[in-house]
Design a protein around this nucleic acid. Structure first.
Length: 315
DNA sequence: GCAATTGCATGATTT
DNA sequence: AAAATCATGCAATTG
């Protein structure tokens, strides 16, 4: 047991064929209803925004940046459009379960009124993913080129909330830089999407380069302790928390067991039941998972990013 | 009894 | 050098 129920979108709706859907999304052929009325403006803005996310993913300190960068697939823009317009989609669209971002505590009600609530647990039941920021899906320009990755030194550390372990206290503040601190060239745009991103609406809270054991049969991912403690709900008990995370690419909500193991005098944080997610996205060692938090309603979003090995020597 | 899952210990690596 | 972190293997548990 323990596999996630992403297949039914959190408990309802028709089953999805993830691989097919994923492939279709990549090919931009998924028949989402009324997908993309031509934007009146903001195309370039959106590119900047997506570039921002690409940069987020690519410039973590842990990545061997000289050899590897992380591709940014059109899926992201697709997803974003979907998520931001989720409420607007007609019911014929197989939208994920509305309360899919609910954060459930595993049968330990005494935890419920505790610090977890500071993470907006209650608001997780909010029926909407996000305000309808965007009403148009801009065209997808294709993968972000590697040139977006140059000058990593001027890019901010995206996630520094992990430096603030006191965020485990009652009031969680994310003292972190966000895409709002992107380089000037990325900030000149003025689209609503850019503003949304700059406002820190979606914030990378955790990034992990997957190891061999992460992608093994067990389907559990060791999370960086610092980031886990800083940005994920506190684990006060041994019992796992069930974290509902929207897939950034697919209209799917994954259920992960978030738990810890005692380890020496410390803890190891584990994201369990991740096998299906890993498999669906074909993630392997060296690939990356990125967990975002939507600051406003306190929701989690997860993305798997394949590592793309650049030819550093080949022309 | 077996396979799957969970929990823990150990050693390597990093800070 | 010591402590902390984490990758990994294996034992224990569960279904």
């Amino acid at each position: 047991m323990g596999q996630m129920d992403g297949g039914d979108g959190g408990g309802g709706g028709p089953p999805y064929h993830y691989q097919a859907l994923l492939a279709a999304v990549h090919q931009q052929t998924v028949p989402f209803p009324n997908p993309f009325p031509a934007p009146s403006s903001g195309f370039a803005d959106w590119s900047a925004s997506t570039s921002a996310f690409t940069s987020l993913a690519a410039h973590s300190s842990t990545a061997p940046s000289n050899a590897v960068h992380y591709s940014f697939s059109p899926c992201y823009a697709f997803w974003t459009h979907y998520m931001l317009n989720k409420n607007a989609y007609p019911t014929s669209f197989p939208a994920p379960h509305d309360d899919h971002l609910r954060l459930a505590n595993n049968n330990h009600p005494r935890d419920a009124p505790g610090p977890a609530s500071s993470y907006g647990v209650e608001s997780f039941t909010s029926p909407s993913m996000a305000p309808n920021i965007c009403t148009h899906m801009p065209p997808i320009e294709g993968p972000i080129s590697a040139k977006e990755d140059k000058k990593p030194e001027i890019l901010p550390r995206v996630v520094k909330s992990s430096d603030e372990l006191e965020t485990r206290n009652s009031n969680v503040e994310f003292h972190s830089e966000t895409v709002g601190t992107l380089p000037e060239s990325k900030q000149g745009h003025d689209s609503r999407a850019t503003k949304l991103l700059n406002s820190g609406e979606y914030q990378v809270i955790l990034r992990k380069e997957l190891t061999k054991s992460d992608v093994g049969n067990v389907g559990r991912i060791v999370l960086p302790k610092k980031d886990a403690e800083a940005s994920l709900p506190p684990l006060l008990q041994r019992d796992p928390l069930i974290l509902h995370m929207d897939d950034m690419v697919l209209p799917v909500t994954w259920k992960f067991k978030y738990r810890y193991w005692p380890n020496n005098k410390s803890r190891m944080y584990i994201l369990d039941s991740a096998g299906e997610f890993l498999k669906t996205h074909g993630l392997q060692a060296g690939d990356v998972i990125i967990i975002y938090k939507n600051l406003a309603p306190g929701k989690f979003i997860i993305r798997g990013e394949k590592a793309i090995h650049q030819q550093t020597t080949n022309p």
